[in-house]
Simulated scan of single mutants.
Amino acid sequence: MDLTTAGTTATLAPATAPLKVAVILASNREGRFAPVVADWFLSRTDGDPAVVTDLIDIAGLDLPTALSYRPGPEEQARLAEVSGRLADADAFVVITPEYNHSYPAPLKNLIDWHRAEWQAKPVGFVSYGGVSGGLRAVEHLRQVFAELHVVGVRDTVSFHNAGALFDDEGRHLDPAGPDAAAKTMLDQLVWWGRALRDAKDVRPYGG
């Protein structure tokens, strides 16, 4: 149905419509472990009627690296595809390693080129690394996303010493714990995603 307020017509998404989740793969290093983690996570969402996913792999993007306050035509052209995908999403999941106690620079570049695309949406985190499991990267990302008016869900999925946890086919060797963590995070993401989507259908966000 449509809602008309003050001469503006907004199309309401059905409350039960699947949440459009942009899954952002944050590593672009050669030999990266990221695709293993991404495949594992996406296999948890396959067949879930509550979500539809769009994998955005930073390694496949051609983003400008020098930020400008007002991007020119060339920068806008290079940003156009990914900007539209971020804007279309109802929610985000960031899959990130930990580099030097923080998150990868290409992810910061992607974040900094956008603003309205992030606002009033939830984000969940899947991290991997050594003994810390990438959690220090996640804590830094929470601060950055909060500045952009993004709601970070509480529970995360983290893989400590990730390389030893999967077999050669990318299957987790002891999946019960990670599967439960992924379900908890996704349940929170869907709740917040639906709540914020419904709220914005009634009243535009004024951040």
Rank of each mutant, 00 (worst) to 15 (best):
A34P: 00
V37P: 03
A38D: 08
A38Y: 06
W40L: 12
W40F: 15
D46I: 12
D46W: 11
T53A: 11
L55D: 02
L55V: 02
I58A: 06
D62C: 01
L63D: 00
T65M: 01
T65S: 00
S68A: 15
R70P: 12
R70K: 15
G72L: 01
A77T: 07
A80T: 01
E81A: 13
G84Y: 06
R85I: 03
R85H: 06
L86W: 04
L86I: 06
A87I: 03
D88K: 09
A89F: 04
I95R: 01
I95P: 00
P97K: 05
E98Q: 10
H101K: 07
S102V: 03
P104N: 09
P106Y: 04
L107A: 08
I111N: 03
I111Y: 03
I111R: 01
D112T: 04
R115H: 13
A116R: 15
E117A: 14
W118T: 04
Q119N: 12
A120E: 14
P122G: 10
V123G: 03
F125V: 09
V126H: 02
S127R: 00
Y128A: 08
Y128P: 07
G129F: 00
S132C: 11
S132I: 05
G133L: 11
G133V: 10
G133P: 13
G134I: 01
L135V: 13
R136F: 02
H140Q: 09
L141T: 03
R142A: 08
R142Y: 08
Q143S: 15
F145T: 08
A146L: 13
A146P: 07
E147S: 12
L148W: 09
L148P: 08
L148T: 10
H149A: 15
V151K: 14
